[in-house]
Simulated assay, not measured.
Amino acid sequence: MKAAKTNSGRFFEDYHVGQVIRHAVPRTVSGGERALYHALYPARGALYSSDTFAQGCGLKASPIDDLAAFHLVFGKTVPDVSINAVANLGYAQGRWLLPVYAGDTLRAESEVIGVKQNSNGKSGVVYVRTRGMNQRDEIVLDYVRWVMVRKGNLDAPAPEPVVPQLSEAVAVEDLVCPAGLDFSAYDFDLSGEPHRMADYDIGEKIDHVDGVTIEEAEHMIATRLWQNTAKVHFDATFREDGKRLIYGGHVISLARALSFNGLSNAQMIVALNGGAHANPCFAGDTITAWSEVLDKAPTGAPGVGAIRLRLVAVKQGADLFALKGEDGKYRPEVLLDLDYWALMPL
């Protein structure tokens, strides 16, 4: 009898600190990636929609949306990191280091930097640092995420817990502006709004007004597009409630696209400071979003500032700007709490 050739994926006990995983199936990006991304989400950022607008900002062409590049790299990691996940829990220390253009080929590798078994003995949390690289072996983005993974063998001994110390935010001096980026001749008419960074105050909160109802088919297309094979997104028998969990990246992209109304000039994401998928999302939920300005700073690029934003996605029934209850826990209507740096005209 021949040995089995199929792979059921890694379980919690299969990870150890220092382990490096090279993820399979590099992916060459095409212009179709952008078109499908914009079909899935109401994304309207001018720099990601128009070559001529991007060239007016000093880039060679319009890059692929930053989150599309993130999802592509993330998807590479799923068969090795989170195919047996209960849930993806959070992100930290993410940086976009190079724009991704049509024709680039991306691959990914991850290093396990932490493990901690849960008290129930049935699962544990795995921390990984992932790098996405292009065909020239240049790092285009890197980030840390942590995910709760089932144990395959409940009798496997618990590892010595290692929880990495993660910074609260990426420092301004560590943000990377794309080479040549220049907002000194930025066209506010074509971008959609007149607001520059100076128009925003730290502590200001912005209701993005619009909403989108989640469709099962669209989130399935998104997970297939980025080759995300996590069972909780595809297999309705994998959860006790018989529901497919909406891919967290789908919620991130929807919320970011909704934030165009009020933040259309927050053009490029350059850092992911932290993030939490606070509650599960399912088909039929209607998502709205609001943002809070956390910080602002100049960069070394001409006319370019960095704005730190908290992006919160909520579902129907949520009170405006409500985030956590008196117990300090996220309210049940909150789906996403994301902290990121974006580049904006000064």
Rank of each mutant, 00 (worst) to 15 (best):
E111A: 09
L323A: 11
T299E: 10
Q55P: 01
G328V: 05
Y340G: 15
N84H: 05
V312L: 07
R224C: 01
Y247A: 13
A217R: 15
L166I: 15
H250S: 09
W96N: 06
A46Y: 05
V140F: 02
D199F: 15
G90Y: 01
T130E: 12
V163Y: 04
A271P: 03
A342T: 04
G242W: 09
R331P: 00
C177K: 09
T223D: 01
A289F: 04
R44C: 12
Q55A: 10
L166Y: 09
D51I: 06
S110P: 01
A271D: 06
P164T: 05
S30N: 10
V162Y: 08
S253M: 08
A301M: 12
A61C: 02
S264Y: 07
L166G: 10
W226L: 13
Y37R: 10
K2M: 15
L294H: 00
T299F: 01
P332M: 14
G75R: 02
V78N: 05
A301L: 12
P302F: 02
G103S: 00
G124I: 09
G31E: 13
S184W: 09
W146G: 12
L59A: 04
T6M: 13
A69N: 05
R44P: 09
D14F: 00
V209P: 02
R310V: 02
H208V: 11
V270F: 09
D210K: 10
G317L: 10
A171K: 08
Y41P: 00
K243N: 15
G300H: 14
K151T: 07
R310S: 06
Q55V: 08
D66Y: 11
K76V: 06
A68P: 00
A342R: 07
G211C: 14
M148A: 14
I202P: 07
L311H: 02
A92W: 03
A171P: 06
Q267G: 03
D241K: 07
L254F: 10
L97Q: 09
Q316R: 07
H219D: 14
Y127P: 04
K324F: 06
G31S: 10
T286E: 13
R310M: 04
A87C: 10
D241H: 01
D210V: 00
G9K: 02
G56W: 09
E138S: 13
G31P: 11
G58L: 01
D137C: 15
F188A: 09
E109N: 14
I206E: 04
G325C: 07
G103T: 00
E218F: 04
L335V: 02
A276K: 11
R34I: 11
P164N: 01
Q165F: 15
L338D: 01
A61H: 05
T105G: 09
I252M: 15
N265C: 12
R129P: 03
T237R: 15
I64K: 01
C177S: 14
L36W: 05
A257Q: 13
Q267W: 03
M148C: 14
H38W: 04
M197R: 13
C281N: 12
A169E: 13
M148D: 03
Y91H: 13
P345K: 03
S184P: 05
